[in-house]
Design a binder for these strands. Structure first.
Lengths: 115, 115
DNA sequence: ATACCATGTCGTATAATTGCAACATACTTC
DNA sequence: GAAGTATGTTGCAATTATACGACATGGTAT
């Protein structure tokens, strides 16, 4: 984004926002859940299970791949997508840190001195 | 979205995606962090700390308010925004459940039978 | 009442996202 | 090599997000 002043924000804030944005569409959430549960992670099978066209699913897959949340291995004619569980664990920690920080009782919380 | 087929996804998937989308911009991440750390949560003070115009910050605040992640109370001339810590805790649980499910060793994970 | 101040809303412009059909690519099989 | 299959890429249209100036609103203070 050259338009948005995202440069002015913290590296951590941008990092968290980038991943959150990737999870900001039900299709991509569904894809990750599918990859976690299904034995097969072939591209075509993923598209078949989602209420979207193969083209659109492919785009969502590329988006997740761009963030390295998933990886694709070409296996002959088909492509097999896998979760990057290590990165997902790291992301989980980032989110947890964010939420813990946010839910800690601050002055602004109910019962605080502010509101 | 009347265009997207979001209706076909799970309620949970849509719910998670909706919140993730809200966190999908560094400004909104920064706002939540600010509200968690600062004593004052007055609208103007928030805008002053962010590299965005007051108008734009106000929009982001409305977006967070629409999801009930934050709440605003009019205090005379100023408006005081507060974190909805209860909801944030609930959201944290949803995210954790999602990540735990995703990072559990599946057949697709490295060492699995798939890739 | 008048002037002022803090916020929100509206209008507008630009960028990014979403979705899909049509085409291109690359491998398999006959 | 030709036909078929699975994917990715391109091009286009519609929707949504982002950003901000200008105006409206509503309370404060003098």
């Amino acid at each position: 984004m050259t338009y948005a002043k995202t440069t002015e924000f913290t590296q951590e804030q941008q990092e968290l926002a980038r991943v959150a944005k990737a999870l900001g569409h039900p299709a991509r959430v569904a894809i990750i859940q599918l990859l976690a549960s299904k034995q097969t992670c072939i591209s075509g099978d993923i598209a078949a299970e989602l209420p979207l066209s193969r083209t659109t699913v492919s785009q969502h897959l590329q988006e997740l791949k761009a963030l390295d949340l998933i990886r694709g291995e070409i296996d002959g004619l088909t492509v097999c997508y896998c979760l990057n569980t290590e990165l997902l664990r790291k992301v989980h920690q980032q989110f947890t840190a964010f939420f813990v920080e946010s839910t800690a009782t601050s002055a602004c919380a109910p019962g605080g001195t502010c509101c």
